[in-house]
Design a protein around this nucleic acid. Sequence first.
DNA 1: TTCCGTTAGTTCGGAAAGTTTACTAACTGT
DNA 2: ACAGTTAGTAAACTTTCCGAACTAACGGAA
Lengths: 361, 361
Amino acid sequence: MLRPHDGRRANLALVMQSLFNESQLTRADLARQTGLTKVTISDLVAELIDDGFVQETGLIQGARPGKPAAGLAVREDQHDIVAVDLSALDVFRAGVYSLKGQCRMERNVALAGRTGDEAVEAAFELIARCMEDADRRILGIGIGSPGTVDAEGRVISAPNIGWNKLALQDKLSQRFTVPVAVLNDANAAVIAETAFADAANDLIRVQITRGVGAGILVAGSLVLGTSAAGGEIGHVVIEHRGAICSCGKRGCLETWISAPALRRRLLADESNHNSVLAEAGRRLGMALSPIVAALDLQEIVVGGPAELIAGPFLDACQSLLIERTHSEFRRDPTVKTSTLGNDAVLLGAVSLVLRTTLGVS
Amino acid sequence: MLRPHDGRRANLALVMQSLFNESQLTRADLARQTGLTKVTISDLVAELIDDGFVQETGLIQGARPGKPAAGLAVREDQHDIVAVDLSALDVFRAGVYSLKGQCRMERNVALAGRTGDEAVEAAFELIARCMEDADRRILGIGIGSPGTVDAEGRVISAPNIGWNKLALQDKLSQRFTVPVAVLNDANAAVIAETAFADAANDLIRVQITRGVGAGILVAGSLVLGTSAAGGEIGHVVIEHRGAICSCGKRGCLETWISAPALRRRLLADESNHNSVLAEAGRRLGMALSPIVAALDLQEIVVGGPAELIAGPFLDACQSLLIERTHSEFRRDPTVKTSTLGNDAVLLGAVSLVLRTTLGVS
DNA sequence: TTCCGTTAGTTCGGAAAGTTTACTAACTGT
DNA sequence: ACAGTTAGTAAACTTTCCGAACTAACGGAA
């Protein structure tokens, strides 16, 4: 159902989105951009100023007739966001971030082999520490979790931490008074690319670590999938002659290009460093080409160890992708390394909170 | 921007959607299903009855205490929809359809080699004939066109018919007074499967004719893509050792499994009928497996000549898909033939009008 | 047979949100 | 000085939804 209230929220989000896109706007600018009337914009802006999300930045003097306009900008000194990355093997990372994605505090906790409820407890304590140390109001808590996470923030299955059907978002919502949002780590990372690295709105972001996962954006929306397994491309068989995978199948993408698999291959064939990497890049391209064509993607972002992916690996991946999907009706896709480094998931958690609370993406 | 009016439209759509899903509901049922209050529902229903979209079907007598409820149902004798399929090689097909997808009139026109503006003219005349012959108010005109079609209903490129950047939707809107919506044929077909054949909301539908195309639904939304080329999987290279394709590449999916290619292969190897078909089915499975995994799809629908696709072709496709994407976290995908036959695009055009005018999908 | 509880639906007054219209404020250029 | 232009606000009105109280119609128990 849609109450008048929801329309208001959508329009507030529209204003915030415009203000996030440009560094400074006037009420008149906002009216023109959004299509709402000046009156409504004034009212919306007043509410946003009241809530501390927007501030006036003084009069804008211009060499034009008419009353000088009052500048408006996102206010960054009132609210912060707690972002959490649970995807690393041995450490839970968290931080207090500004609305624009600047890290203001960092808090980590070593996992030391803890799994199941103990790991949940560790995450709770880490977040509580962030909340206590924060010196501004916390807009919300965003979390990137390993495993499959459904639309309600339940971790359906995360074998490495031993989580099963864990209602993480619900539990955290009860414990903390601010909004909480949980997302799969790869999905968090992909929204970070659009929010903080100017990536496209139709995008796939592949993360290469111990395994291989991906997050997919279609028209700016995350692909969650029927079983919350959207983007899980690590266990697609690329060629049935490959090595046996931990999942039981043979020749999964992970057996070709996961970081450990790649390092093994490099050790086994030290003289042909580049050709080993290029071969792996082509394998990734084989997996991606049907996806790129089907979703009509122009941009692929890859995250992972730079010494593995930057260079021959991505070059070969892009070449093969173009070779296999070139069409006169579409621009050829480009394959880039992520510029967000190790913080992609954390920034994704920030973006997640911005999405769910302010409607900004 | 979102005016109060838009919220109203969304709530009207919500009511219509519920009424489309079940054959009969009461105002009280609608209030419970939608979350809106009885008062609002009564108001919305009154408007829908006024506009001829809903009718009361008499009191429902039940063995329960309380006032007997008045049944409500979608009214089918007031509005019809004009659906058009421009995707066939030599004929433009059109029809007048009821809101529930029943064909009430059929009108076709032989193309006789006409292309470009002449073909546009032929389509206009065909639609005009349908509008004149219709005996009920026309809710809208829905069109499935070959080629790439963008979100504004412009045919970006349809080589066979000689159309380029043709603002088909705009032109038709100016000529006819009712809403017009244009969609790519494969995209029309896939929304028909969910609307009229009970298919899932996450779905890919592959059409095998002279070429190979697909329509993709993610969470009920069509994948249009950056260049309006979403679903265009016909020219993904499956194996570089294949035949040379009309697009210039080698080993495109079309060279393996398009209807003409398949028929050629069957003729060339008549003794191994089934294994030729199974081999082709596996090729389709190779193309689909990364897509199925990435989008977490559980359902694949294939349309095309039954003598080619029903049987070994689809069996092999499904086997290979499961072989390559099986995961303990996901149900294995099923591959089905379309039950809509040659009318998939026409029914998709009907569904398109229902989507754009009533918000029903 | 009466009366109470239950369910369906409407009437009425009010709150929220956005619009139109008319206004004030403050500047540029002639 | 004054006309034209742009930014922003004030007041009245419209649309839309809701809560509370109401009417309508039924089954079942006293």
